[in-house]
Deep mutational scan, measured.
Amino acid sequence: SIEEEIKKAEEAKEKGKTFIHGDFVATTEELLDELLKRLRKKL
């Protein structure tokens, strides 16, 4: 679910890890923020 993806992305951000969502690879905090923004729009 979208909620689960958001939670996983937030955890990755806290730990400074890379998060992959489909073909979107978030390797930096900026990219994770962008991904979180996109996911929240889908809610």
Rank of each mutant, 00 (worst) to 15 (best):
Lys7Cys: 13
Phe19Gly: 04
Phe24Thr: 05
Glu29Tyr: 10
Glu10Val: 10
His21Gln: 08
Leu35Ser: 00
Lys41Phe: 06
Lys8Thr: 03
Lys7Val: 05
Leu36Arg: 01
Lys7Phe: 07
Glu30Phe: 09
Glu3Gly: 06
Arg40Asp: 00
Leu43Thr: 01
Ala26Lys: 01
Val25Ser: 06
Lys41Met: 12
Ile6Asp: 02
Lys8Ser: 06
Lys37His: 08
Glu5Ser: 12
Glu29Ser: 13
Gly16Leu: 11
Thr27Lys: 09
Lys37Thr: 11
Glu29Leu: 14
Lys7His: 08
Lys15Met: 12
Thr18His: 09
His21Lys: 05
Glu34Trp: 15
Lys17Trp: 15
Thr28Pro: 01
Thr28Tyr: 07
Lys41Pro: 00
Ile20Phe: 06
Glu11Met: 08
Ile6Thr: 02
Gly16Ser: 07
Lys41Tyr: 07
Thr27Asn: 15
Lys17Asn: 12
Ala12Lys: 01
Lys7Asn: 07
Ser1Gly: 09
Glu14Pro: 02
Thr27Val: 09
Thr28Asp: 05
Phe24Ile: 08
Glu4Arg: 08
Glu10Lys: 08
Thr18Ser: 10
Ala9Ile: 14
Thr27His: 13
Glu4Ile: 08
Lys13His: 04
Ile2Met: 05
Arg38Cys: 15
Lys37Glu: 11
Ile6Asn: 02
Phe19Lys: 05
Asp33Leu: 11
Leu35Trp: 05
Ala12Thr: 02
Phe24Met: 06
Lys41Ala: 14
Ile20His: 07
Lys7Arg: 14
Phe24Gln: 03
Gly16Phe: 10
Gly16Glu: 06
Glu10Ile: 12
Ile20Trp: 09
Glu29Arg: 14
Glu14Asp: 09
Leu43Trp: 08
Ser1Val: 07
Leu36Tyr: 02
Asp23Cys: 15
Glu3Ser: 08
Glu30Tyr: 10
Arg40Ile: 04
Ile20Thr: 11
Leu36Met: 03
Thr18Gly: 11
Gly16Tyr: 09
Lys41Trp: 08
Lys37Gln: 12
Lys15Tyr: 09
His21Glu: 04
Leu36Gly: 00
Leu43Gln: 05
Glu29Asp: 10
Glu10Ser: 05
Glu11Lys: 05
Leu39Trp: 06
Glu10Asp: 03
Lys15Arg: 10
Asp23Arg: 04
Gly16Ile: 08
Glu11Gln: 08
Lys42His: 09
Leu36His: 00
Val25Cys: 15
Arg40Lys: 04
Ala9Gln: 02
Glu3Asp: 07
Ala12Ser: 04
Glu10Cys: 13
Lys8Trp: 07
Ala9Leu: 13
Thr28Asn: 09
Phe24Tyr: 07
Thr28Val: 10
Glu5Thr: 15
Leu39Thr: 00
Glu10Arg: 07
Lys17Tyr: 14
Asp33Phe: 12
Leu35Asn: 00
Ala9Met: 06
Asp23Pro: 07
Ile2Val: 08
Glu3Thr: 08
Val25His: 12
Ile2His: 02
Asp23Val: 13
Thr28Arg: 01
Val25Glu: 08
Ile6Arg: 03
Glu29Val: 14
Arg38Gly: 01
Ser1Tyr: 12
Arg38Ala: 13
Thr18Arg: 09
Gly22Leu: 10
Ala26Asn: 02
His21Gly: 05
Glu14Ala: 14
Lys15His: 12
Glu14Leu: 14
Lys37Ser: 11
Lys13Ile: 05
Arg40Gln: 01
Leu43Asn: 02
Glu4Ala: 11
Glu30Ala: 13
Glu4Val: 06
Leu31Asn: 03
Thr28Lys: 01
Leu39Asp: 00
Phe19Arg: 04
Lys8Asp: 03
Ile2Gln: 04
Lys17Thr: 13
Thr27Leu: 11
Glu30Ile: 07
Glu11Ala: 10
Glu29Pro: 15
Ile20Tyr: 07
Thr27Gly: 09
Leu36Asn: 00
Glu14Thr: 12
Lys8Asn: 07
Lys17Arg: 09
Ser1Arg: 11
Ser1Lys: 09
Ala12Glu: 03
Ala12Arg: 02
Glu14Ile: 13
Thr18Ile: 14
Glu5Phe: 14
Thr27Phe: 14
Lys42Thr: 10
Asp23Ile: 14
Glu29Asn: 11
Lys7Ile: 07
Glu29Ala: 14
Phe24Trp: 10
Glu34Tyr: 13
Ile6Ser: 04
Leu31Glu: 15
Leu35Met: 03
Ile20Gln: 11
Glu4Cys: 15
Arg38Ile: 14
Lys13Leu: 10
Glu10Pro: 02
Arg40Val: 03
Ala9Lys: 03
Glu11Gly: 03
Val25Pro: 03
Lys7Pro: 02
Leu32Gly: 01
Glu11Ser: 06
Arg40Glu: 00
Glu34Ile: 12
Gly22Asp: 07
Leu39Gly: 00
Ile6Gln: 04
Thr18Val: 13
Lys8Met: 11
Leu36Trp: 05
Ser1Gln: 08
Asp23Gln: 09
Leu39Lys: 00
Arg38Val: 12
Ser1Trp: 15
Glu29Ile: 15
Lys42Pro: 01
Thr27Cys: 14
Ile6Lys: 02
Glu4Trp: 11
Lys8Leu: 11
Arg38Asp: 01
Ala26His: 01
Ala9Tyr: 02
Ile2Asp: 03
Lys42Glu: 11
Lys42Arg: 12
Lys37Asn: 10
Glu34Phe: 13
Leu32Phe: 14
Ala26Trp: 11
Leu39Gln: 00
Glu29Trp: 15
Glu5Trp: 15
Glu30Met: 08
Leu36Phe: 04
Glu11His: 06
Leu32Arg: 00
Arg40Gly: 00
Ile6His: 02
Leu31Met: 14
Lys15Phe: 10
Leu36Pro: 00
Lys8Phe: 04
Phe24Leu: 07
Glu10Leu: 14
His21Arg: 05
Glu34Thr: 07
Ser1His: 09
Phe19Cys: 14
Leu35Ala: 01
Lys41Gln: 13
Lys13Tyr: 08
Ile6Met: 04
Ile20Val: 11
Glu5Tyr: 14
Glu11Leu: 09
Thr18Asp: 07
Phe19Pro: 02
Asp33Lys: 11
Ala9Phe: 03
Ile2Thr: 04
Glu34Pro: 01
Leu39Val: 00
Glu14His: 10
Arg38Ser: 05
His21Ile: 08
Thr18Leu: 08
Glu30Pro: 02
Ala9Val: 14
Leu31Gln: 15
Asp23Leu: 12
Ile20Arg: 06
Thr27Ala: 11
Val25Gln: 08
Thr28Trp: 10
Thr28Ala: 06
Lys15Asn: 12
Lys13Thr: 01
Leu43Val: 02
Val25Tyr: 11
Leu36Ile: 14
Arg38Gln: 11
Phe19Gln: 03
Leu32Tyr: 11
Arg38His: 14
Arg38Phe: 15
Thr27Trp: 14
Thr27Asp: 15
Lys37Ile: 09
Gly16Arg: 05
Gly22Phe: 09
Glu34Cys: 14
Ala12Ile: 04
Arg38Tyr: 15
Glu11Cys: 14
Glu30Arg: 10
Val25Met: 10
Leu43Pro: 01
Glu11Ile: 07
Ile20Ala: 08
Leu32Val: 02
Ala9Asp: 02
Ala12Met: 04
Leu32Ser: 00
Glu34Arg: 10
Glu10Met: 13
Thr28Phe: 12
Glu14Lys: 14
Ala9Gly: 03
Ile20Met: 07
Glu5Asn: 08
Leu35Val: 03
Asp23Thr: 12
Phe19Thr: 04
Ser1Phe: 11
Ala26Met: 05
Arg40Met: 05
Gly22Asn: 07
Ala9Asn: 02
Leu36Gln: 00
Lys17Asp: 10
Gly16Met: 03
Glu30Asn: 05
Glu34Val: 06
Leu31Thr: 06
Phe24Lys: 00
Glu4Tyr: 08
Lys17Glu: 14
Gly22Arg: 02
Glu34Asn: 05
Arg40His: 02
Lys13Glu: 02
Thr18Asn: 08
Ser1Thr: 12
Leu39Glu: 00
Glu10Gly: 03
Ile6Leu: 08
Arg40Phe: 09
Ala12Val: 01
Leu36Thr: 00
Asp23Trp: 14
Asp23Lys: 08
Thr27Glu: 11
Leu32Met: 04
Asp33Gln: 07
His21Leu: 12
Lys42Gly: 02
Gly16Ala: 02
Leu43Ala: 02
Lys17Ser: 10
Ser1Ile: 07
Glu29Met: 14
Glu30Lys: 11
Glu14Gln: 13
Leu35Phe: 04
Glu14Ser: 13
Lys37Trp: 05
Lys41Gly: 06
Glu34Lys: 09
Glu30Thr: 09
Lys37Phe: 06
Ile6Val: 04
Leu35Tyr: 05
Phe19Trp: 07
Lys13Val: 04
Lys8Gly: 06
Lys15Ser: 10
Leu39Arg: 01
Glu14Met: 13
Leu43Glu: 00
Glu30Gly: 06
Gly22Ile: 13
Gly22Cys: 15
Lys13Cys: 15
Leu43Asp: 00
Ile20Asp: 04
Phe24Glu: 05
Lys7Trp: 07
Leu32Lys: 00
Ile2Pro: 03
Ile2Asn: 02
Leu32Cys: 02
Asp23Met: 11
Lys17His: 13
His21Pro: 04
Glu3Met: 13
Glu3Leu: 14
Gly22Ser: 05
Glu29His: 10
Lys37Cys: 15
Lys42Ile: 14
Leu32Ala: 01
Asp23Glu: 10
Lys8Gln: 11
Leu31His: 08
Leu36Asp: 00
Leu43Arg: 09
Ile20Cys: 15
Leu31Val: 03
Leu39Met: 07
Leu32Pro: 00
Glu14Trp: 12
Lys41Ser: 09
Val25Arg: 03
Thr18Trp: 15
His21Ser: 13
Glu5Pro: 03
